[in-house]
């Protein structure tokens, strides 16, 4: 009772990365709150799924397996979670800010009358003093999120309603196994007791999903090109550097719009959020919609002809110069220094 719950999304029998990232965060929150971490998986043919989940430090895995529960549709998944949360009364519940989590989360929060905070970038435990009512709340979930198109960051709390629900985008939290040998319990749910025939009014007739091909969000080093790279040919130089130092290539929206790079490489508010150990921004001005997706990089190198480019405010190293000149020099110097 009163534990931290994570809803685990399933695609092709695999637990989604975003869910594993949330389990990692959930474990940390459960440690801070001195409670247990529980996971709920809903789908079809889920035999053995707990093996993917428990190593993240999960104490109880709830499994609802029924062939009608995959692919995801809103009502049956909502019905299961609403009843389970009603019985188990979690204090915190986390979901991915994905097309599933953002369909399911608000539905569940509406049914339970609990607050839901969308797209959090940070979740921490803290106290809150309600001065007006002279009340102190201990150990609330601070849900920190950008709003207003990324122009402000708000800290949201749910003082009175439970669970405190939040969604988080893929790639925002780190994914880290607690222990391969972590032992938790598995509880199978009797699906018939949770869903009714009317919950299946929406049917998926056709489905075409593609696994995303490039994986910039897990890359340790990212070389991101912007409009200032100037051409698709110049982008090839970025790939060359990426090859040499073992990096992935990302892009700003202006570079994607100009056709220099594919959309799946876009970093920022309407692309992916990345947090590599090294981010090399090449010919990127550093507009807020872009920096929203890279500002948590551990180290940033900015290469720009404009010595006052806003991106330089995020940089640990500022190189004022032309991409076409700087990148080949970097390649050459890397090779010489690793010989």
């Amino acid at each position: 009772m009163n534990n931290v719950f994570v809803y685990c999304e399933i695609e092709e029998g695999q637990v989604a990365d975003v869910s594993l990232e949330l389990l990692t965060k959930g474990r940390k929150l459960a440690d801070d709150l001195k409670c247990e971490l529980e996971a709920i998986v809903i789908g079809a043919d889920l035999k053995g799924v707990e093996k993917q989940i428990m190593p993240y430090g999960v104490d109880t895995v709830w499994i609802a397996s029924d062939k009608r529960l995959y692919p995801y549709t809103t009502l049956p998944h909502t019905a299961i979670i609403v009843k389970l949360f009603g019985d188990e009364k979690p204090q915190v519940a986390l979901m991915g800010a994905t097309s599933i989590g953002r369909d399911l989360g608000p539905r569940v929060s509406s049914a339970l009358h609990s607050g839901l905070t969308a797209d959090c970038t940070s979740l921490i435990i803290g106290d809150h003093e309600d001065k007006k009512n002279n009340k102190v709340y201990k150990d609330l979930l601070y849900q920190i999120r950008p709003a207003f198109g990324g122009n402000i960051v708000a800290t949201i709390i749910n003082p009175d309603c439970r669970p405190q629900m939040a969604t988080v985008r893929e790639g925002v939290m780190k994914k880290e196994i607690r222990s391969e040998a972590y032992k938790g319990k598995v509880k199978q749910l009797d699906v018939e007791k949770y869903v009714s025939a009317e919950d299946f009014v929406v049917k998926v007739i056709e489905r075409h999903m593609e696994a995303s091909k490039v994986n910039i969000k897990n890359a340790g080093i990212i070389i991101a090109g912007g409009y200032g790279v100037g051409s698709k040919e110049n982008f090839d130089k970025l790939y060359e550097l990426a090859d040499v130092i073992g990096a992935e290539v990302g892009a700003s929206r202006a570079a994607v719009d100009a056709g220099y790079a594919a959309h799946e490489r876009q970093i920022g508010q309407t692309g992916v959020t990345v947090r590599p150990k090294l981010y090399i921004a090449c010919g990127i001005s550093g507009q807020i919609q872009h920096t929203a997706g890279m500002e948590e990089s551990s180290m940033v190198i900015a290469i720009n002809t404009d010595k006052n480019a806003p991106i330089n405010n995020f940089a640990d190293y500022v190189i004022t110069g032309d991409i076409a000149d700087v990148i080949p020099k970097m390649i050459k110097q890397y090779k010489e220094n690793t010989k």
């Binding site: 809150h128 708000a154 800290t155 949201i156 009175d160």
Partner: peptide, 9 residues
């Protein structure tokens, strides 16, 4: 249920 505790520019 949700309250804005703080807002930062």
């Amino acid at each position: 249920p949700t309250k804005v505790k703080a807002i930062e520019n």
